[in-house]
Design a binder for these strands. Sequence first.
DNA 1: AGACCGCCCACTGTAAAATT
DNA 2: AATTTTACAGTGGGCGGTCT
Length: 281
Amino acid sequence: MKVYPFKIPKPVDEHLIVQIDKEPIFYNRLHQHEEIQISHIINGNGKLLVGDSVHQFSAGDTYVIGSNLPHIFKSIPQEKDAHMVTVFFTDKSFGSDFFMLPYFKDLKQFFFNATTGFKVITNKEIIAQQLIELQSQNRLKRFISFLELLENLSQISTEPLSSFIYSKTLSVNEGERLQEIFDFVLKNFQQSISLDEISKMAFMTPNAFCKFFKQRTNKTFFQFLIELRIEHACQLLSSKKELNINLVSDMSGFNSISNFNKKFKKLKGITPTQYQQSLLQ
DNA sequence: AGACCGCCCACTGTAAAATT
DNA sequence: AATTTTACAGTGGGCGGTCT
């Protein structure tokens, strides 16, 4: 399958695509598409890269990915298949003026939040239920439910996934290059990575690499790397609470606890142990 | 667009102290 | 005892400028 850009397979007269993914792992390429994507994770967990940011996803989460936002659900293989329900559509799916009609004024918040992508925080169950029910409904009912879903998504509180708005679509080459970089980093973040190393694998001089990465993601490579490592640490802390902090720091690619603590607090606002304790409640 | 240079500051790890 | 914070010094990365 082509890395970039991504085309959502669409029947000729279908405007609202409901897709079920149930495979050992999710599609593991960085990709972007015009369609806005609403995805509910039924099973599976891993890291979600959106634009310039790293998040952990797990079963029960619902995400909205805006138009042309590069993203990848990098799942951790498990005994059970990764499983998600997704709705694809564009603001033009029902005619270019459809969502401009005054009836949809209240959906403005949704479309605004979608541009950076967001995670559903409140009313999770209701929204998940609505998404799941879409699968089995006939077209008219599905359309009605879909509008209700958008209404709900406009009213809930959300958490943005990325701070950077992609104004342009990446070229195929740029996409492939970023894909290779992300692949490499996801495999190797537990060891130390130097600028020389990463730029060599991208076939660029260190300087060109810095500029390339910054330009496409709005953050430096090492900022991204730190965020990835801290997200990994969070995953460890939540899945294996018997691990001590020292070990978690090691396993996440940090060479000193002092640095790990510093970076953890800077990104999460609390110390690793506080984070661990907050999960127990 | 990428290569090369150079300055400056952010990040890194060590060690030790403070906090739980 | 384990974890977190602080101080400090050395280094590598960020980035502006300039050239190809």
